[in-house]
Design a protein around this nucleic acid. Structure first.
Length: 500
RNA sequence: GACUCCGUAGCUCAGUCGGUAGAGCAAUACACUUUUAAUGUAUGGGCCCUGGGUUCGAGUCCCAGCGGAGUCACCA
């Protein structure tokens, strides 16, 4: 034990010794029978007060208000908090010294008692028995909420909140709710897809070729095989192999890993949902996404209109569809659809948009789009029919030359979903990969690698298929009104703490 | 990776012009048997992120580092 412990922690350790000397095990090993949860008592007490003549609860002691020979306290369990009332003349040594001297905020306790309503109207457990279940040696921040619901002394330091999420979850109101909503969203998604008959699958996270997207990977090494392996940046090519293998609908919810910068919408590992459905095209997929997002919004919020910052996002479809060219025309007044590479470069110069030498016309148009248009797309909007060279895995557009059958869904200026009519022509796919190799040779670090086994699978034949990817973290951000991805991840990436 | 801001008690934060380190909550002790941001009185608690420098003297000024946040770049 270090002599540099703060005063309060030293006192808790001394208390621990006193408890042990009194013959009380501060960390008892046994089953704790409980009759229910705090939240259920608060919700149901008035319907049938007689039912709560004896309740057993377990949780953390989070507040003590002592009035000498009687006290109020608050017990927090997994569902909420309830007030306790304790009297010395009823509890004896369990009151003094156990409750009044030895129990600290944060300790786990078990109580038995009856439920009543105080003079002030608060539903309260009148405690007949109290015991220590687990001693806490660290001091939790004490966050209080007043009668108007205003939070005082919240635990706000982002570094401490993310490094010690367990503390954040305990003391800050509303944090748990974000993660409960995240969980609701995921289970609603699985339910929805399961009802459609689509199969949830798992594909490799360790891949020897990092295909399916354009991003820098994390690299690792397998000792026995003595080969480099990459953490997946995408799982698209594996899911398509499963469509080749005869499944008509497969989806995977899982972590992707991209070795890129971090900011309030990017974490090195993030959760993607990808789904591939046979015999469908991207028009079908747009309707599917509308139905899905309506379902998820209802599951999380009970309504399809969702407040986000100053906006009210309307997830009820159909969403507006706008081709990339038309979107640029709408927000800049300039028609780029007929421009060649030189003209596009000139236009970028006019708008002070930085360009690189390896950028072809498609990439230039995408760059213009992201600078000039993205930020304006607040309500759910499909941007469709992207330039061909940007999108090596999508089918060429059935009528628009130089475009692919693709859509991206934008909400609040952020890309939430990306989908194609998937390219299933193996010869075309090989040419597209070769084009990517040329881009790589021109200096494009994100150009996609060629995957021979994937091409072989396509040569065996893939049915017409539509595929979709949804960034789950960003969707959860929208549905929980959060501007930072760190707020929807339990443990966002941080630099390691100093070990000193 | 670049720039800007931040780092003081367990938590949230003050700290003036460079001159003995402050408050609220939490803690300790006492009082109080229906309080609820409980209350009252008293007390204790500090590697002022780390390391250099300037100075008679640095929480404060300068430099470097570490960590965080924001903006940009890259990306989803």
């Amino acid at each position: 034990m270090s002599p540099t412990l703060p005063e309060q922690e030293l006192i808790r350790r001394e208390t621990l010794t006193e408890i042990r000397e009194a013959g009380i095990d501060p960390y008892p090993a046994e089953l704790i029978p409980v009759t229910g949860f705090t939240a259920d008592i608060l919700r149901l007490f008035d319907d049938d007060p007689g039912r709560y003549q004896s309740v057993r609860l377990a949780g953390r002691l989070m507040l003590k208000r002592s009035m000498g020979k009687a006290s109020f306290a608050e017990l927090m369990d997994a569902r909420g908090r309830i007030q306790l009332y304790l009297k010395k003349d009823e509890l004896g040594e369990a009151y003094d010294p156990l409750f009044s001297k030895w129990l600290d905020l944060g300790d786990f306790i078990g109580v038995e008692g009856y439920v009543f309503r105080t003079k002030m109207g608060e539903i309260t457990v009148h405690v007949r028995e109290i015991r220590l279940l687990s001693k806490s040696l660290k001091v939790l921040p004490v966050v209080k909420t007043d009668a108007e619901g205003k939070v005082h002394d919240a635990f706000t330091d982002p570094e401490l909140r993310y490094r010690m999420r367990y503390v954040d979850l305990l003391v800050n109101p509303g944090i748990r709710d974000i993660f409960l909503k995240r969980s609701k969203l995921l289970s609603a998604l699985r339910r929805h897809f399961s009802e459609k008959g689509w199969l949830e699958v798992e594909t490799p996270i360790l891949q020897s070729i990092h295909g399916g997207a354009a991003a820098r990977p994390f690299m690792t090494h397998h000792n026995t095989l003595d080969i480099p392996l990459y953490l997946r940046i995408a799982n698209e090519l594996y899911l398509k192999r499963l469509i080749v293998g005869g499944f008509d609908g497969v989806y995977e919810i899982g972590k992707m890993f991209r070795n890129e910068g971090m900011d309030r919408t990017h974490n090195p590992e993030f959760t993607m949902m990808e789904i591939y459905v046979a015999y469908k095209d991207y028009y079908w997929m747009m309707e599917m996404v509308e139905e899905l997002l309506e379902t998820l919004a209802l599951a999380v919020h009970g309504q399809t209109d969702i407040p986000y910052g100053e906006h009210l996002l309307q997830f009820k479809g159909p969403y507006r569809r706008l081709s990339m060219h038309d979107a640029i025309k709408e927000y800049t007044g300039v028609d780029v659809s007929a421009m060649d590479e030189a003209a596009l470069r000139q236009q970028c110069k006019v708008w002070h948009i930085e360009t690189d030498n390896f950028m072809g016309p498609g990439k230039l148009i995408d760059e213009i789009f992201s600078v000039k248009v993205e930020q304006h797309l607040i309500q759910p909007t499909y941007i469709i029919d992207h330039p061909l060279e940007m999108t090596p895995l999508a089918k060429k557009h059935r009528t628009k030359a130089g475009c692919v059958e693709r859509f991206e869904l934008f909400v609040c200026g952020k890309e939430i979903a990306n989908a194609y009519s998937e390219l299933n022509d193996p010869l075309d796919q090989r040419e597209r990969f070769v084009e990517q190799l040329k881009l790589a040779a021109r200096g494009d670090e994100e150009a996609m690698a060629l995957d021979e086994d994937f091409l072989r699978a396509l040569e065996y034949g893939m049915p017409p298929t539509s595929g979709l990817g949804i960034g789950i973290d960003r969707l959860v951000m929208l549905m929980t009104n959060q501007v930072s991805i760190q707020e929807v991840l339990f443990f966002p990436q941080m630099k390691p703490e100093k070990t000193s």
